[in-house]
Every structure is written in structure tokens, then in C-alpha cells.
Simulated assay, not measured.
Amino acid sequence: MFYCSSSQAKANRSFRVSNISTRKNNSYTSHKTNGENLMISLLCFCIVAMSNFSLVLTKHRKETIPQNITLPNTAYLKASAWLITMLSLVVSVIQFGWSIGPSAFFGCLTIAVLVVVLTLTYQARYLLHITLISAIVGVIELLL
């Protein structure tokens, strides 16, 4: 039978308590904040990309922009949408790794599509405002 004195038990108990308090103050909390900033910027960039994809279509373009956009400008919109989408995927994989990164990216992409679809359905004229605000917030959150 193992015998433990009361001083050893108190020392063991205090070690466990100090170990728990140091676990709460480790670097995970600061990493979590950086991950939250990245998720917000990832969501904002996905919203910008999906709104660019929607503005390529003539129907959505007529609902959101009063003036006509020429064909080369729509090609630039489509190229920028693909570029922003791929860069968002790369940033997500770099930050979260291959196990969580694509899942986080597709989750943000799904929310972005929902935002763009609901905006086009109910208040199409506000799509450009949402796109501009998302781009600004995404850059600010990425720099923080």
C-alpha cells in the first residue's frame, strides 16, 4: 500500500492547481484571437468574391448597378473573384492546416453565398455597399 504524508498531498494538490492555472494562460488564447480575426477576414473576402461572381451575370448586374459594364470589365470581375477565392483558401490552409483549413474555408464560403443570395433577393441595390464594407473590414482584420 502506498503511503502519502499530508505535506506531500498538499504539494501534489498545489501542483495540480498551478498546472491548471498555467494551462489557462498559455498561448492558445492569443492564437484563438488571431484565428477569430482570420475567420472574420476570410468571411469578408468570401463575400467580396461571391458578390463579384454574381455581378458577372447580366441579370444581377442590372439589379445592382444602374450603368452598363462592358464585357472586359466583367472578365476582370470574374478573374478577381477567382483570385480572391483561391487566396482565401490558401490563407485558410496556411493558418489552420489541411485538416481544418478547407472546412473553415467552405464554411465561410457557404455563409458568404447566403449573404449574397439574401441581399440579391431582398435588397439588391445594397450589394455594392456590402461588398465595399466587407473588403474594408477584411483588410483591417487581416492586418490586426
Rank of each mutant, 00 (worst) to 15 (best):
V116Q: 05
F105A: 00
N37Y: 15
F2E: 14
R125M: 06
Y122M: 01
R125A: 10
V93M: 12
S14G: 04
H31D: 10
F96T: 00
K78V: 13
N52R: 02
F53G: 01
S80T: 11
S103R: 01
N52Q: 07
L120F: 11
P72C: 04
L77S: 09
H129C: 01
M86W: 08
S51F: 07
Y76N: 12
V113N: 06
T110L: 07
L42E: 03
K24Q: 06
T121Y: 11
F15V: 05
G138A: 07
V115N: 03
K62H: 08
S80W: 08
M1C: 05
Q8C: 15
V17D: 14
I65K: 06
S54E: 08
N26M: 07
S41D: 04
I69D: 00
Q95M: 05
I94C: 03
R61F: 04
A124V: 03
A124R: 07
N26G: 15
S21T: 13
T131C: 01
M50T: 06
S30H: 01
T33W: 01
V91K: 01
F96C: 01
L127E: 00
L55F: 12
R23W: 13
V56E: 05
R61H: 09
S103F: 11
V90I: 15
R16Y: 15
A9M: 11
I100W: 04
I111H: 04
L55P: 00
I140S: 03
R16W: 13
I140Y: 04
I100N: 02
K78W: 11
P102E: 06
H129D: 11
I94F: 02
T29A: 10
E36T: 13
M1E: 07
I136H: 03
V56Q: 03
C4D: 11
N12P: 05
V116T: 06
S88V: 04
L89K: 02
H31R: 15
V139D: 00
S99Y: 08
P72I: 09
S5M: 10
H31V: 03
A81N: 09
C46H: 13
L118A: 14
